[in-house]
Amino acid sequence: TEYKLVVVGAGGVGKSALTIQLIQNHFVDEYDPTIEDSYRKQVVIDGETCLLDILDTAGQEEYSAMRDQYMRTGEGFLCVFAINNTKSFEDIHQYREQIKRVKDSDDVPMVLVGNKCDLAARTVESRQAQDLARSYGIPYIETSAKTRQGVEDAFYTLVREIRQH
């Protein structure tokens, strides 16, 4: 089974770092803004072998026109913010609204991801993020692309959301 996953969120929150940590098991430290990259990885989730087709997208506003296209083809979405960047957390709402509009559905598989949880300088409390996820009816997972904490959990949870859909 193949799953088309799309990673969305503001610029600099760590979308590529999360994806590369999942696929290649290493942490990319330097920031190089993405336009669009796709990665494929075969994994076993709950005993089922599946192929993850992951689209890593641009957070930069100037590429926002490309969003409709990949939102149409994606089956599930990782909505990523950084726990030390309140603005990126506030941006999640717009991504969710755009996904709902493009998919013409209120019920699209999504996982809210709070990345950079290895950093002490948190400005978005776990509780705020949990409340937001609960209001959307989606899971919330904290990750660190640096330490790998929660990385597999985030992507695998999204696959489970798609399966249950």
Rank of each mutant, 00 (worst) to 15 (best):
N84V: 06
R40P: 01
C50Q: 07
V44Y: 03
I141P: 08
L132I: 03
D118R: 04
I83G: 10
K116T: 15
I92Y: 11
I83L: 07
D37T: 01
Y70E: 11
I83F: 07
E161Q: 12
G14R: 00
T73M: 13
H26P: 01
I45K: 07
V8S: 01
A17E: 03
R160W: 11
Y156I: 13
D29E: 03
N85I: 06
I23H: 11
Q21G: 13
V102S: 06
D29W: 03
R127F: 11
K41V: 10
S16F: 03
P139H: 10
G9S: 01
D118G: 14
M110W: 03
L52H: 01
I23Y: 13
A120F: 11
C117M: 10
R160P: 07
Y3P: 12
A10C: 07
E142W: 09
R127Q: 06
A154Q: 05
E161M: 14
D68W: 02
E97Q: 08
Q69L: 06
V159L: 14
N84Y: 09
E142N: 09
A120W: 11
P139F: 14
K103T: 06
K15R: 00
E30N: 03
Y140Q: 07
E62L: 08
Q164W: 06
G114F: 08
A120G: 13
A10Y: 07
L51F: 02
Q60D: 15
P109W: 02
H165W: 14
T57G: 08
Y3R: 14
G74Q: 12
R40D: 01
R72K: 00
V102P: 01
T19S: 08
L55I: 11
A145F: 07
G76I: 13
E152T: 10
I45F: 06
P109L: 01
G150I: 14
A133E: 13
I92V: 08
L52A: 11
K87Y: 04
I138C: 04
D153H: 08
N25K: 07
R122P: 12
P33V: 06
Y63T: 15
D56P: 03
T86C: 01
V151N: 13
E62G: 11
T86G: 04
K146I: 14
T49I: 02
A145W: 08
L78S: 04
T57Q: 11
R101I: 05
I99E: 03
L119D: 15
Q60A: 15
F155P: 09
E75A: 05
Q94L: 08
V6M: 05
L5C: 11
C79E: 00
D106N: 12
F77T: 01
I54V: 06
F155I: 15
T143W: 09
K146Y: 15
A82F: 02
A58T: 15
G9D: 01
E36Y: 03
R163K: 14
Q130I: 04
R72T: 05
S88I: 02
H26N: 03
M71C: 02
I92D: 00
Q130S: 11
S105T: 09
D106G: 06
R148N: 13
I141E: 04
R134L: 10
R40T: 04
I35D: 08
K15T: 03
D107I: 06
I138L: 12
F155M: 15
L18D: 00
R40H: 03
A129L: 10
D118W: 09
I138P: 04
V28N: 07
G9C: 00
L22W: 08
C79Q: 05
V113T: 06
N85T: 04
Q69E: 02
L18A: 02
A82K: 08
Y63P: 15
I162E: 11
C50P: 10
K4R: 04
E90K: 05
S88Q: 05
R96F: 07
R67C: 14
Y140I: 07
D68M: 01
V6I: 06
Q130D: 09
V159E: 11
T34P: 04
K146F: 14
F155Y: 07
D53Y: 09
Y31N: 13
M71V: 06
E97I: 03
T19C: 02
Q128W: 13
Y140A: 10
T19M: 10
I83E: 07
G74T: 08
D106P: 07
S88C: 10
S126E: 09
L51E: 03
L55V: 04
E152I: 04
L52M: 02
G74F: 06
N85L: 02
A82N: 14
V7G: 05
Y95A: 09
V44K: 03
G14W: 00
D91A: 08
T19Y: 03
V8D: 02
R72A: 11
T49N: 08
S144Y: 14
S144K: 15
L52T: 13
I99H: 02
E125V: 13
G59A: 12
C117D: 13
E36K: 02
H26I: 04
F27H: 09
S64E: 07
R134S: 11
A82R: 03
G12V: 15
Y39P: 00
Y140V: 11
N84Q: 00
V80E: 02
I54N: 02
K41Y: 00
K103H: 08
E125P: 10
L18T: 01
D91C: 11
Y31T: 09
I45W: 02
L18Y: 03
D118K: 12
R67A: 12
F77G: 02
Q164D: 06
I23S: 05
V28R: 02
R163A: 11
F89R: 02
L55E: 15
N85E: 07
D91I: 08
D106V: 10
L18P: 01
R163Y: 13
A10N: 10
M110Y: 02
E161D: 07
E142G: 12
C79K: 02
P139E: 11
M110G: 00
Q130W: 10
V43M: 01
I138H: 11
Q21F: 13
D56L: 03
K4W: 00
E48F: 10
G12P: 15
T123I: 10
V102R: 02
A120N: 09
R67L: 11
Q60C: 15
